[in-house]
């Protein structure tokens, strides 16, 4: 549905120095999926998503929507394509001087939707975002979450096949973020709209994304299905993002002490394995004691995923058998050394 091929983008700044925001990025988003791009601030995420509808024309590379290269289109043809690509933003970008109703109706009118259809469309999409009681309210009287709903309704009212989201939840509190994410998920499921979103929060990725790409310094350093990237992050940046959802503040000195008495291991559970009480089983089955140091289970879109850090105390042979047992149960096990501990 969306194919970016070898996109580069260089900004020429005033002082004649060039900033390369994108370094030859390729990405394919399939029809009907929710694709997330995550990265730290300045990684080039906004530049990338803005290349999709050519708000930022790439310096080189191709942007294909349904096989059509947008970079070769006339201004008019590009406008027509853009009408079928919705976009929402961190800052909502609503008209302050227009009511909620007008904020949706005006763009419809300007894109040539028939006067007779406009009213029905506005009402339909305000209902979908649960704002049917706010028609005549001005944006300044709305909360952040409500403003984003208006922006979503505005995007949907053009009946797009694609929705681009540039940090749409980054200005919202956690509860509101979840509501907006749930709404985006519903839009994807019920209206079949393909969503490409960018974010700096893992929370957003795990909540609704099917696939994820990790960006750093203008490159995609890792991409794949969310579950694969979470369970087996390869790039250091990806590992840091994954670790960020498993808060753990164990001082290195304590880890060092514990190491004297037995290994510290990280257990990664996916799906069913996350539900089973594996740790208590091994401490009964083998002559060892286990002690959980930190851990968390998160619900990914498809299945639960958990990580535990535990200390095992006991004879080496018993410990090794216990670890083998866990591995046979479908749990990934890796030993943590105080030196490579990032905690």
């Amino acid at each position: 549905m969306i194919t970016l091929e070898n996109i580069t983008k260089t900004f020429q700044t005033k002082k004649q120095t060039a900033v390369t925001a994108l370094n030859g990025v390729s990405l394919t988003v399939e029809k009907g999926e929710i694709y997330g791009v995550i990265g730290y601030s300045g990684a080039g995420k906004s530049t990338l998503i803005r290349c999709v509808n050519l708000l930022e024309p790439p310096t080189s590379g191709q942007v294909k929507i349904d096989g059509v290269d947008l970079t070769g289109l006339s201004k008019e043809a590009l406008r027509n394509v853009r009408q079928k690509i919705g976009m929402i933003f961190q800052g909502f970008n609503l008209l302050k001087t227009a009511t909620v109703y007008q904020n949706i109706a005006i763009p419809l009118k300007l894109t040539g939707v028939k006067e007779a259809d406009i009213d029905a469309r506005v009402k339909k999409y305000l209902k979908i975002v649960s704002l049917e009681d706010k028609h005549n309210v001005y944006p300044n009287q709305l909360s952040g979450g409500q403003k984003q709903r208006v922006a979503i309704a505005r995007a949907l009212s053009h009946e797009p096949e694609i929705l681009l989201s540039d940090e749409a939840t980054s200005a919202l509190d956690p509860d509101t973020t979840d509501q907006i994410l749930a709404l985006l998920h519903k839009i994807n499921q019920e209206l079949g709209i393909t969503i490409l979103l960018i974010t700096h929060e893992m929370h957003v990725i795990q909540q609704i994304c099917d696939r994820v790409a990790v960006m750093e310094n203008g490159d995609i350093v890792e991409q794949g299905k969310v579950i694969d990237v979470y369970t087996n992050p390869k790039h250091l940046t990806t590992q840091r993002f994954v670790d960020s959802i498993f808060p753990s503040q164990i001082p290195a000195s304590i880890i060092k002490d514990l190491e004297q008495q037995g290994p510290i291991i990280d257990l990664t559970f996916v799906g069913d394995a996350a539900d089973r009480p594996s740790l208590s089983v091994i401490s009964k089955k083998f002559a060892i004691e286990t002690n959980i140091l930190s851990g968390n289970i998160v619900q990914l879109k498809e299945q639960p995923f958990g990580k535990l850090r535990a200390h095992i105390k006991g004879a080496a042979s018993e410990t090794n058998q216990a670890i083998d047992y866990l591995k046979n149960q479908g749990v990934q096990v890796s030993e943590v050394k105080s030196i490579d501990s990032i905690y």
Partner: peptide, 14 residues
């Protein structure tokens, strides 16, 4: 707000 102008460009408005 530049953002609003951009939002309208993104909607394909002249």
């Amino acid at each position: 707000d530049r953002g609003v102008i951009e939002a309208y460009q993104a909607m394909g408005i002249k």
